[in-house]
Amino acid sequence: MRMHNADETCGIAQAAMVLGDWWNVLVLREVARGHVRFDALAAEIGLSRKVLTERLGRLVAHGVLHRSLYQRRPVRYEYLLTDSGAGLLPLLVAMQDWGDRWVLGDGSLTATAEADGAEHARVHALVGTRLPDLELPGVRGADLPLVSPDAAATVLFTYPGTGIEWGSIPGAAGCTLENRLFRDTWPDFRKAGADIRGISTQLVDEQAEFALSEGIPYALLSDAAHRLAAALRLPTFRGAGRLRHKRLILVADAERTVRHALFPVNDIPHAVERSLRLAADCARAA
């Protein structure tokens, strides 16, 4: 592709050169979702082997992906994100957010969703799938897995953010209430053999301050780098200067399989009560 001289100093133009076309974007989307082997990528995207080989080669050459050998006979590679590639995750999430709002939606800024919309379909399609083997930064200074290693079931709830005036954005308010309700029912979750993970795109120090002031006993994890949002294609919205998770609840078993999904969450007290019942059922079935 021939570029105008002015494009040599334009970051947008240079990024577009790396991304190339929509196939490259979809390859990165699927790698972020955990489909890192050739056959899995071909199946998910529907690309011919020739075209996929070309796209993977270009992304490796640009330093966005690197190949990791996992089988010698015959030789087979996994394609993993480099630091440069991980830096594209916020871009992928922003593209999804834009598509959800302006292409699949009516352009309204909202922190909730319609029951028959694309976001609803994506979240509920997670039931029966395995969560990624992913660790996120926690408020106590260590990265923690999505699923608690000492619980038969784990409840993951995503929320927009605490300590923020949300104004007129539908569905955004209630994060402090939700955390307090999970805090107050924490003994019941533990008695049932379940753990809780609260996840937002707030920074770790913001979460730590809130956890200390509110006496939050369960782990709060930061998805500020959008690794989880990209891996699960989670619904987001832009508020208070940042992409935020929409409120949802997933119940996973000890093998990281999603057993239940609650979305949209409009009645927070009811959703917390229901997640306790679902988590207890999941733990008993383990």
Rank of each mutant, 00 (worst) to 15 (best):
residue 242 R to D: 02
residue 221 L to C: 00
residue 258 V to L: 04
residue 234 L to H: 04
residue 110 T to M: 12
residue 139 V to Y: 09
residue 173 A to K: 09
residue 93 V to I: 03
residue 199 I to G: 00
residue 142 A to M: 09
residue 282 C to Q: 02
residue 224 A to L: 05
residue 215 G to C: 03
residue 190 R to K: 02
residue 160 P to H: 01
residue 175 C to G: 12
residue 191 K to C: 12
residue 225 A to H: 05
residue 222 S to K: 00
residue 26 L to D: 12
residue 49 R to E: 07
residue 83 D to R: 10
residue 216 I to C: 01
residue 70 Y to L: 00
residue 59 L to C: 10
residue 104 L to T: 14
residue 212 L to G: 04
residue 217 P to V: 11
residue 58 R to P: 10
residue 173 A to I: 10
residue 220 L to C: 08
residue 278 L to H: 03
residue 236 T to L: 12
residue 241 G to C: 00
residue 95 M to E: 12
residue 212 L to D: 01
residue 180 R to E: 14
residue 56 L to G: 08
residue 22 W to S: 10
residue 205 D to G: 03
residue 35 H to T: 05
residue 249 I to A: 03
residue 146 L to D: 05
residue 157 F to P: 15
residue 244 R to E: 03
residue 261 A to I: 08
residue 147 V to T: 11
residue 174 G to Q: 07
residue 52 L to R: 04
residue 200 S to W: 03
residue 82 T to Y: 04
residue 59 L to S: 10
residue 156 L to I: 15
residue 249 I to M: 02
residue 145 P to S: 07
residue 95 M to R: 10
residue 262 L to Q: 06
residue 87 G to L: 11
residue 88 L to W: 13
residue 122 R to M: 07
residue 83 D to N: 08
residue 177 L to V: 15
residue 184 D to E: 14
residue 132 P to C: 13
residue 265 V to D: 03
residue 124 H to R: 10
residue 259 R to L: 06
residue 42 A to R: 12
residue 33 R to I: 00
residue 269 P to G: 06
residue 229 A to M: 01
residue 135 E to C: 14
residue 130 R to Q: 12
residue 261 A to C: 03
residue 115 A to Y: 06
residue 120 H to N: 11
residue 43 A to V: 12
residue 126 L to T: 10
residue 46 G to S: 12
residue 27 V to H: 06
residue 104 L to D: 12
residue 51 V to K: 07
residue 3 M to I: 09
residue 208 A to R: 09
residue 112 T to Y: 06
residue 254 A to I: 00
residue 130 R to A: 14
residue 156 L to S: 11
residue 26 L to V: 09
residue 168 S to F: 12
residue 112 T to L: 04
residue 169 I to G: 13
residue 270 H to D: 01
residue 110 T to N: 11
residue 11 G to K: 09
residue 3 M to C: 12
residue 237 F to E: 05
residue 216 I to S: 02
residue 190 R to P: 11
residue 49 R to I: 05
residue 105 G to H: 04
residue 64 V to I: 14
residue 47 L to W: 05
residue 152 A to P: 04
residue 212 L to E: 03
residue 244 R to S: 06
residue 140 R to T: 06
residue 117 G to S: 14
residue 54 E to F: 13
residue 66 H to S: 00
residue 187 P to Q: 04
residue 27 V to W: 08
residue 228 L to G: 03
residue 173 A to F: 10
residue 203 L to M: 03
residue 192 A to T: 10
residue 68 S to K: 02
residue 275 S to C: 05
residue 177 L to C: 13
residue 27 V to M: 07
residue 196 I to F: 06
residue 171 G to S: 08
residue 277 R to H: 03
residue 257 T to N: 01
residue 285 A to D: 07
residue 276 L to P: 11
residue 66 H to V: 02
residue 181 L to Y: 11
residue 114 E to G: 14
residue 171 G to Q: 03
residue 188 D to Q: 14
residue 162 T to A: 12
residue 215 G to R: 01
residue 218 Y to E: 02
residue 211 A to H: 05
residue 270 H to E: 04
residue 147 V to I: 13
residue 197 R to D: 04
residue 200 S to K: 00
residue 55 R to C: 08
residue 94 A to T: 13
residue 177 L to S: 15
residue 249 I to D: 02
residue 36 V to C: 02
residue 147 V to G: 08
residue 274 R to L: 02
residue 242 R to T: 09
residue 98 W to A: 15
residue 133 D to A: 15
residue 45 I to V: 11
residue 34 G to F: 03
residue 121 A to K: 08
residue 192 A to K: 06
